[in-house]
Amino acid sequence: MDSPWDENPENSTHNDIEWSRISSEFTNVGYREGITAGKEAASQEGFDAGFANVGVPIGRELGLLRGTSSVVLAFLKSSADIDEKAQMLTEAQEISSQLSRVRFSDIMPRDIEAEEHAREHLEAEGIELDMNEVIADKREVEGLEDMLANLSAYNGKSKEKHARPTIDDVQCLKDRLRLLTNRLDLGIAWS
């Protein structure tokens, strides 16, 4: 026959091994280069989606609340003749300081797809996925802040442990702030 292999049947196992070695080698090289290319091709799309769908609306909402509460507080401080001023001033200070504690990581929605993919990797390879460096640094600093806050709370003999605020807390602060601006007759168009 035409093929030289047919004359040496004992070589066929060796040939099979060689064959699968070559095939997996090329497949692996292709896979590696494909990963890099796929990552590059999709990261901007992911960035834009996270930016517009999650970061911007949540940031704007919290910013609006903080900006509003800071003015309400300043207004109450500077106004002399308001009924129940002291009580409202306390409320405004409380809202303001609680709003200032809120972090993005407290109120951002979970990224289910990312969590699922990380779980798949963990199950398949037993390794956890690396977080982006900048974000990981930020979370680490936040963790340290929490530790210090709890430490000083204990030193001050306060039994209260500083729990992180939640999205419900923010909604509650928003309602309280709205109530306050209504009482002060500040007609603010809430978005």
Binding site: G30, Y31, R32, E33, G34, I35, T36, A37, G38, K39, E40, A41, A42, S43, Q44, E45, G46, F47, D48, A49, G50, F51, A52, V54, G55, V56, P57, I58, G59, R60, L62, G63, R66, F104, M108, D111, E113, A114, H117, M131, N132, V134, I135, K138
Partner: peptide, 28 residues
């Protein structure tokens, strides 16, 4: 092809995480 679709998932996830942070920071 297989690598590309896997890489795409990672690119989307990482990009999304960064975009969220940046969008929050600017619009806060």
């Amino acid at each position: 092809q297989n690598g590309f679709s896997h890489g795409r998932i990672h690119g989307l996830i990482e990009g999304r995480a960064l975009g969220r942070e940046k969008g929050f920071e600017m619009w806060e």
